[in-house]
Simulated assay, not measured.
Amino acid sequence: MISINALQRRYLRAQAHALHPVVMIGDAGLSEAVMREIDINLKSHELIKIRVLGDDRDARATMLTTICETLGAVNVQHIGKLLIIYRPAEKPKLALPK
């Protein structure tokens, strides 16, 4: 799993502000199909928003941890029902500040 510093996290949050959620996680939770869809979107976009439709905050936090550990991504922000995650592509589109 990669790590980012506070300056990079702030930069990524600013970049994610205008994004719309590309994946929605419903009542079924993190199925194999949902994980595959998240992986595909991370490969093409690097920075994505995910909307979780459940009301349980602890379940959302657990899903975020599972996604990041499984897919080698980093948690940028968890605010309400939105999860913002980042994983650099082989040819990065976003140039993170040092």
Results as ranks from 00 to 15, higher is better:
1 M>Q: 10
2 I>H: 13
3 S>P: 03
4 I>R: 06
5 N>C: 07
5 N>Q: 07
5 N>D: 13
5 N>E: 05
6 A>G: 03
8 Q>V: 09
8 Q>F: 10
10 R>W: 06
10 R>T: 11
11 Y>C: 13
12 L>F: 03
12 L>T: 04
12 L>M: 09
13 R>P: 01
15 Q>C: 15
16 A>P: 00
17 H>C: 04
18 A>Q: 09
18 A>W: 06
19 L>H: 05
20 H>V: 13
21 P>K: 12
23 V>S: 03
24 M>T: 15
24 M>Q: 15
25 I>A: 07
25 I>P: 00
26 G>P: 03
27 D>N: 07
27 D>M: 07
28 A>R: 11
29 G>S: 05
31 S>P: 04
32 E>W: 12
32 E>V: 14
34 V>Q: 12
34 V>C: 14
35 M>T: 13
36 R>H: 15
37 E>N: 15
38 I>Q: 06
38 I>V: 15
39 D>E: 15
40 I>P: 02
40 I>C: 09
41 N>K: 15
42 L>G: 05
42 L>T: 05
44 S>Y: 14
46 E>C: 02
46 E>G: 01
46 E>L: 03
48 I>H: 00
49 K>C: 03
50 I>E: 06
50 I>C: 03
50 I>L: 07
51 R>G: 03
51 R>L: 10
54 G>Q: 09
54 G>L: 11
54 G>M: 11
57 R>Q: 07
58 D>Q: 10
59 A>E: 04
60 R>H: 05
61 A>D: 14
62 T>Q: 15
63 M>F: 12
64 L>Y: 02
65 T>Y: 12
67 I>F: 11
67 I>Y: 06
68 C>Y: 04
69 E>A: 12
69 E>Q: 13
71 L>C: 13
72 G>H: 11
72 G>P: 08
72 G>K: 10
74 V>G: 01
74 V>R: 07
75 N>E: 10
75 N>H: 10
76 V>M: 01
77 Q>N: 10
78 H>N: 08
79 I>L: 13
80 G>R: 04
80 G>Y: 02
81 K>E: 01
81 K>Q: 04
83 L>K: 00
84 I>E: 03
85 I>D: 04
85 I>A: 02
85 I>F: 01
86 Y>I: 03
86 Y>E: 02
86 Y>A: 00
86 Y>N: 00
87 R>Y: 01
89 A>R: 12
90 E>N: 06
90 E>H: 10
90 E>Q: 14
91 K>T: 13
92 P>K: 04
93 K>C: 04
93 K>A: 13
93 K>S: 09
94 L>F: 15
94 L>Y: 14
96 L>M: 09
96 L>N: 14
97 P>M: 11
